[in-house]
């Protein structure tokens, strides 16, 4: 039962932060059951969704992720009793912040996937991958990584595009990396 391999123009990078007790086991089950899901997803295992700091998500975006998934145990099933309840509030707040600064929340997915839900894991990952694929690469954070802020006077009427991008500076900067 081999799904036909379709070639796409764009293969999004998806980073999945998962808890070891439920979602990781669920993803494992999907694997041992030989279910097919996009290989775009890179799984990172944590003890608990409560351990997943919003800064990890930022870092993933900065380092090239086009989409991020955070997944853990269903409410009430947390191995540490309440880690996922705390995570739920924290990520609700974080979403509001990201949206306020202009990040498209369609690139960030949260889910509860239990150790028995191999099928749900496949669905969640496939849906996120395909959604991000249609959205295209996420340039915002990556661009920041490659930008330098040469000092200009605050509010001065300097044309920043020339200040930042004089050929000499660009060449010097490129030669560093």
């Amino acid at each position: 039962m081999h799904a036909e391999h379709i070639k796409h123009d764009f293969e999004p990078k998806i980073v999945a932060f998962v808890c070891t007790w439920c979602t990781y086991a669920g993803a494992d089950l999907a694997g041992t059951s030989r279910m097919q899901y996009p290989s775009n997803v890179r799984v990172l295992k944590f003890p608990c969704t409560g351990r997943i700091d919003p800064v990890f998500i930022l870092r993933a975006f900065q380092k090239g992720a086009d989409g991020v998934l955070v997944s853990g145990c269903h409410p009430g099933d947390c191995h540490y009793m309440a880690g996922n309840f705390h995570a739920r509030r924290r990520f609700a707040a974080f979403r509001a912040l990201l949206s306020f600064v202009g990040v498209d929340l369609n690139r960030l997915q949260f889910s509860w996937v239990s150790a028995a839900e191999g099928g749900k894991w496949v669905d969640v990952v496939t849906e996120l991958t395909e959604r991000v694929r249609t959205m295209g690469p996420m340039p915002e954070f990556k661009e920041l990584e490659h930008e330098e802020q040469w000092s200009t006077f605050a509010g001065a009427s300097v044309d920043k595009s020339t200040v930042l991008n004089s050929p000499e500076l660009k060449e010097a900067y490129d030669s560093i990396g």
Binding site: P54, L58, R59, L98, V101, F141, L144, E145
Partner: peptide, 11 residues
Amino acid sequence: RPAGNMAWHLV
């Protein structure tokens, strides 16, 4: 730098 600044402010 822009990348770190964005992260700092969100953090």
